Computed example of a mutant assay.
Amino acid sequence: MLEKDFSRSNLSLEANLKSVIGNGISTQFWVDFWIGTGPLKDCFKDLFRLANNKNATVSEYFQQGSPGQWVLQWVREPVTAQELQQVCDLQQLLSGVMCTNKKDGWVWKGAEDTPLSVAFVRTKIQAVDYQNEVEWPLWNKWISPKINIFCWRASMNRIASKESLTHRGILVGDTLCPRCGMCEESTIHLLWDCFFAKSVWWEIFIWLKIPFPVQVSSFQQILGVALGMNGSNRWKKLIGAIMQVAAWEIWKARNEKIFKERNVHFIRTADVIKEESFLLVSSRSNLCNLVWDRWKEFNIRDVML
C-alpha cells in the first residue's frame, strides 16, 4: 500500500530515507543515503564510475582495526585531477566515521530525531499529497498540520470511512455507521448527519453563538460556515480553526468506538473540542490575551479587535 502511495505522490524514498550506520551490513556504500547530503553515487559521480562493486555495503569498505580504516576498491586507480580531488573530498567526509557492532537503522531526512514508522512516513506522503493538489484555501496555521490534512482529505472524501474503504475494494463487513446503525458510513454521515456528530455540532454552535446550518450536503459546507460570516478575517480564521478541530475530535470519537468499543458521550467530545481548540489557538496564533475562563464562555470578541 505504501508503494502505491509513494508512486502517486512522486515522493522519493531513496532521497528521504537516511541510514544511521551501525555495522554497515545492510547499507550500500554508494547507493544508499547514509552520509553527507545524499547518496555518494550522486555526490562523487566520477568515483562511482570507477567503483569495482557499485553495490558494495559500507561494511565491505571498512576494515576493523585500531583504528579502523576505509579501503575503497577501483576498476582502475583515480588519476585525473578531478578524480583525485574527489578522493580527497571523500576521505575527508569519511574521516572519523567508523562501523560499530550495532545494526544499521533508518531515519527520515530532516527529522532525524523522530522514530521512523509506517505512520510517520504516511504523514509525509499526505503532506506531499496536499502540496501536489490545488492549494486548499482553508489551511489554518492556528491548528496542527495533522488536523489540516485530515480536513482537507475529508473534503475530498478521502478519509477511511466504511463507504470509502468499500469503494477501494477493502472488505469491512458491515458498512453501517457504528454509532447509529441506520445509514452507510460515508464522510458526510460520520462527520455531520449521524445523530452523535450532529449533537456535538449543536453544542459547538451554541457555544460559538452562531446559527446552526439547516441544510448541509457536503463536508466543505461545514468548513465554509466561517467564510460566510460577518466579521474580520481573524474572526473567520478563529471560527474556521474551531470547525476543523471539531471535525477531528468527532473522527477520533468514532475511532474510539470502532477500535476500542468505547462510547464517548457527545458532551465529552464537545468539551474536548473547546479545550483542544483553546490550547492550539493560544499557542499558535497572535492572539495574546486569550484566557480559559472567557474562552469556555466564548466571550472573546474584544480580543479579536
Rank of each mutant, 00 (worst) to 15 (best):
M1K: 08
D5S: 06
D5C: 00
D5I: 01
S7D: 11
S7E: 12
S7G: 08
R8W: 14
N10D: 12
E14C: 03
A15M: 11
A15D: 15
N16W: 04
S19F: 15
V20M: 07
T27I: 06
W30H: 06
D32F: 08
G36F: 12
G36P: 13
G36Q: 09
P39H: 08
K41H: 14
K41G: 00
C43L: 15
F44I: 09
F44C: 04
D46C: 01
L47H: 07
T57H: 13
V58Y: 11
V58I: 15
S59H: 10
E60C: 04
F62V: 05
Q63Y: 10
G65R: 05
G68M: 04
Q69W: 11
W70D: 06
V71E: 09
W74V: 00
W74I: 03
V75E: 12
V75W: 05
R76E: 13
E83H: 04
L84P: 04
Q91Y: 14
L93T: 13
S95D: 15
G96T: 11
V97H: 13
C99G: 01
N101H: 13
G105C: 08
G110K: 08
A111E: 15
A111P: 03
T114H: 06
T114Y: 04
P115A: 00
P115E: 00
L116P: 08
F120Y: 10
V121C: 05
Q126V: 12
A127S: 14
Q131H: 13
E133R: 15
E135D: 10
N140S: 09
I143F: 06
I143N: 01
K146P: 07
W152S: 01
A154P: 03
S155E: 02
M156V: 00
S161F: 13
E163F: 13
E163R: 06
L165E: 07
T166D: 09
H167T: 02
H167Q: 11
R168F: 04
V172W: 05
G173L: 06
D174G: 01
L176D: 10
C177M: 03
C177V: 07
P178G: 02
G181H: 11
G181C: 04
C183Y: 11
C183L: 10
S186W: 08
L190A: 06
L190E: 04
L191K: 00
D193V: 02
D193Y: 05
F195D: 08
A197T: 07
V200C: 10
W201G: 02
S217L: 05
F219W: 15
Q220S: 12
L223F: 07
L223P: 06
L227P: 00
L227F: 12
G228M: 09
G228P: 11
S232N: 06
R234G: 02
L238Y: 08
A241K: 04
V245W: 10
V245I: 14
W248F: 10
W251E: 06
W251R: 13
A253R: 07
A253Y: 09
A253H: 04
R254Y: 07
K257Y: 10
I258G: 01
K260H: 15
E261G: 02
N263L: 06
H265T: 00
F266Q: 05
I267S: 03
T269K: 02
T269P: 07
D271G: 00
I273A: 08
I273S: 06
E276Y: 13
S277E: 06
L279W: 14
L280Y: 14
V281E: 05
S283K: 14
N286C: 01
C288M: 08
L290F: 13
L290Q: 11
L290K: 11
V291I: 14
W292A: 01
W295F: 12
